[in-house]
């Protein structure tokens, strides 16, 4: 834990009865950071959020926030905000009262309350809908109310569970920018959950990639996108050619294949992965027969059958197309590979 750590999860284990949903999770977050929890459905993202809010008690481990141990602090004392995936607005209260709910519990009233709620509604651009009931709002508007309701509490950390997944594609992009703006303006430390890698890459300062209840990789969007460190992450961000390494050689269906010359690969590397766009076509020590070819706008994609197994390759578009059945040479340069330290 560094001096800058604001929210910290230390060996946090979370279980539903006997089944462990999150296993010894470690995560340090700096003040003002925007963190994305990225991973497929069921990997423990919501569960982790619930533990940070206090809705769920860890089976083991510690959670600290702003220098205080909050592991056993009840949810209503934590000053952690959560925007639910389903928004969880109060159906019987109008927009104003929804946003005012937590403030009233803080015994805020009169002018002070009004100013605060108006400020919150302003921030999300909903001042004109203060009298509406949640049922009279669109999904995007409900989302904004939920956001304002959490923000006016000045939480130390604001958690958002799949904030964009219930919105249609156009609104999703709009809300993305909106979230970024709100985070910039309020400076609040934010953790949001998503199963969409493009969302995580576009928004987050750092990404936590999760799988089956543990962290696969933690890093900047560039780290995750360009330098995935495990097979799972590589696959998740589009490295479609993945090979295990053995004795410094690629292990393929046809036995071990020596690497083409390039940067030496050290012993901790258990596998190499290439994006289709990093497979050099036309020259190289390997060859394959074109089995499939499809146009993808910016590029043409090929499926090759080679001694290494099936290879996915891509060529930028102003380029002579290969035909199905052609035998073409290709190269997998170690320089362009992601080095994977875990292959399971």
């Amino acid at each position: 834990m560094s001096d800058l750590t604001y929210l910290s999860l230390k060996d946090v284990t979370l279980a539903y009865g006997k089944s462990v949903a999150v296993d010894r999770l470690n995560l340090d977050i700096t003040r003002g950071e925007l963190i994305a929890l990225l991973g497929p459905s069921g990997c423990g993202k919501t569960t982790t959020m619930r533990a940070i809010t206090g809705l769920m008690r860890p089976a083991a481990g510690r959670i600290t926030l702003d220098g205080a141990d909050i592991t056993y602090l009840p949810a209503n004392k934590r000053q952690v905000g959560l925007v639910f995936q389903s928004y969880a607005l109060f159906p019987h209260l109008n927009v104003f009262e929804n946003v005012a709910f937590g403030l009233r519990l803080k015994k805020l009233g009169g002018k002070a309350l009004e100013t605060k709620v108006d400020g919150g509604l302003d921030l999300v651009g909903l001042s004109h809908l203060a009298d509406r009931k949640p049922a009279e709002l669109s999904g995007g508007q409900q989302q904004r109310v939920a956001l304002a309701r959490s923000l006016v509490m000045d939480p130390k950390v604001l958690l958002l569970d799949e904030p964009l997944s219930n919105l249609d594609a156009r609104l999703r992009l709009e809300m993305r920018t909106e979230l970024q703006r709100v985070q910039r303006e309020s400076g609040v430390t934010m953790v949001f959950v998503t199963h969409d890698q493009s969302e995580a890459l576009a928004l987050a300062d750092r990404i936590v990639v999760m799988k089956d209840g543990y962290i696969e990789q933690l890093g900047t969007p560039e780290d995750v996108y360009d330098r995935p460190s495990t097979r799972f992450v590589a696959d998740f961000v589009g490295f479609e050619n993945i090979f295990p390494m053995e004795n410094g050689k690629l292990k393929t269906a046809d036995g071990e294949v020596p690497l083409s010359p390039g940067t030496p690969v050290d012993g901790t590397v258990k596998g190499l992965a290439w994006r289709p766009s990093k497979v050099a076509l036309g020259t190289g020590p390997f060859s394959g027969i074109v089995k499939g070819s499809s146009f993808a706008g910016h590029a043409r994609e090929y499926l090759l059958d080679s001694a290494l197994g099936p290879i996915k390759a891509e060529q930028p578009v102003p380029h002579d197309a290969y035909d199905i059945g052609d035998r073409i040479a290709f190269d997998l340069a170690p320089d362009h590979a992601a080095r994977l330290t875990r292959m399971e």
Binding site: T53, G54, L55, A75, N76, K77, R78, V80, G81, L82, F84, S86, A88, L89, F90, P91, F101, G102, L105, K106, R149, M153
Partner: peptide, 19 residues
């Protein structure tokens, strides 16, 4: 017809369970 997460939302906003 009432989602149970609104109670959790209320708790996170500072209410007790009974509240």
């Amino acid at each position: 017809n009432l989602r149970s997460d609104i109670e959790e939302a209320a708790v996170i906003l500072g209410s007790s369970r009974a509240g």
